[in-house]
Amino acid sequence: MYTDKVMDHFANPRNVGEVADANAVGQVGNPKCGDIMKMTMRIVDEVIEDVKFKTFGCGAAVATSSMATELVKGKSITEALMLSNKAVAEALDGLPPVKMHCSVLAEEAIKSAIADYYRRQGIDPTPIVGCDADCAHCH
């Protein structure tokens, strides 16, 4: 049911852990629903210099977290905010329909971390990120 790419990112996840001197932290999901993603980033000059994740969840949750970190690492905030869940799923050669919500969670985790970055600077992230990215309310 999983593509080889999903299994590869599950078996050898990229960027696992926490960025030590992170200035952007986002956590989305809900243990009740069985998946939680935590993204930590170090953003310098509006560029995501480093990003790591920790995920509690199924194979697709781990693989989408891993792929999402790969896709935003070294990118500007503006580019990272354009990352859609569909793009994450496509980069993994697709996900089973019941697992698409995992890719949504990965997109939200990125947005949530960036929203946190803005908040730390005293900037209201809502107009930039699109929602308050406090995804616990949505799940």
Binding site: P31, I36, M37, K54, T55, F56
Partner: peptide, 9 residues
């Protein structure tokens, strides 16, 4: 392995 990457652990 699962716990090492779990944000809950």
């Amino acid at each position: 392995r699962g716990r090492a990457m779990s944000p809950l652990w």
